[in-house]
Simulated assay, not measured.
Amino acid sequence: MKLGKYLLGIALAASAFGASATTTITGTVDYGGATVGTSCDGQSESQQPVFVLTDGATIKNVVIKAGGGADGIHCTGSCTLSKVVWNDVCEDAATMKGGSGKTMNVSGGTAYYASDKVFQHNGIGSTVNISGFYANTIGKLYRSCGNCSSNGGPRYVNISSTTVANVSASVVGVNSNFGDIAKIRTLKVKGWTKGSPAICVAYKGVQSGSESSKIGEQWGTTACNVSTSDITAY
Score class of each variant (00 low, 15 high):
Ala94Met: 03
Ala70Trp: 13
Ile73Lys: 05
Asn122His: 03
Gln207Tyr: 15
Gly72Ala: 06
Lys188Gln: 00
Ile124Val: 14
Ala66Lys: 12
Ser131Val: 10
Asn122Arg: 08
Val63Phe: 11
Val171Arg: 03
Ala135Val: 08
Ile159Gly: 08
Asp55Thr: 02
His121Ala: 05
Gly9Arg: 10
Ala93Gly: 06
Asp30Ile: 01
Lys188Arg: 03
Thr80Gln: 12
Leu7Glu: 14
Thr23Leu: 09
Gly108Gln: 09
Asn151Trp: 13
Ser144Pro: 11
Lys2Phe: 05
Thr58Met: 00
Lys190Glu: 02
Asp88Met: 11
Glu211Trp: 11
Gly9Trp: 08
Ala14Trp: 15
Lys194Leu: 06
Lys190Ala: 10
Ser196Trp: 01
Thr103Ala: 09
Thr137Pro: 09
Lys65Thr: 15
Ile215Val: 14
Cys200Leu: 08
Gly101Met: 06
Gln207His: 15
Ala21His: 10
Gly33Gln: 10
Thr228Cys: 02
Ser78Ala: 04
Ala70Gly: 02
Gly37Ser: 11
Asn61Ala: 00
Leu81Arg: 04
Ser78Leu: 09
Val118Asp: 07
Gln43Ile: 13
Thr103Tyr: 04
Val29Phe: 03
Val50Met: 05
Gly42Thr: 05
Trp192Glu: 03
Cys79Met: 05
Thr76Met: 13
Asn166Cys: 09
Val128Ile: 13
Ala111Cys: 09
Ser126Ala: 03
Gly72Asp: 08
Leu53Gly: 06
Ile130Met: 12
Thr137Glu: 09
Asp180Glu: 03
Thr80Asp: 03
Ile138Met: 10
Met96Asp: 01
Gly56Ala: 00
Thr23Asn: 02
Gln120Lys: 15
Met1Ser: 04
Lys60Asp: 10
Gln43Met: 13
Val118Cys: 02
Ala111Pro: 01
Asn175Arg: 08
Tyr234Trp: 15
Ala111Val: 10
Gly123Asp: 07
Cys90Met: 04
Ser82Tyr: 12
Asn136Thr: 14
Tyr113Trp: 13
Thr58Ile: 02
Gly146Thr: 00
Gly125Thr: 14
Ser176Tyr: 03
Gln43Cys: 03
Thr222Gln: 05
Ala198Trp: 09
Ala19Leu: 02
Leu141His: 07
Cys40Leu: 08
Arg155Leu: 06
Ile199Gly: 11
Glu45Asp: 14
Gly109Pro: 10
Thr28Ile: 12
Ser46Tyr: 13
Leu8Thr: 15
Ile25His: 03
Glu211Arg: 02
Ala233Pro: 14
Thr35Ser: 14
Leu141Gln: 05
Gly216Ile: 08
Leu81Ala: 05
Thr80His: 00
Ala182Val: 07
Val226Glu: 00
Ala169Lys: 14
Asn151His: 02
Trp192His: 02
Glu211Met: 09
Lys140Ile: 05
Thr162Lys: 06
Ala19Arg: 08
Cys145Phe: 14
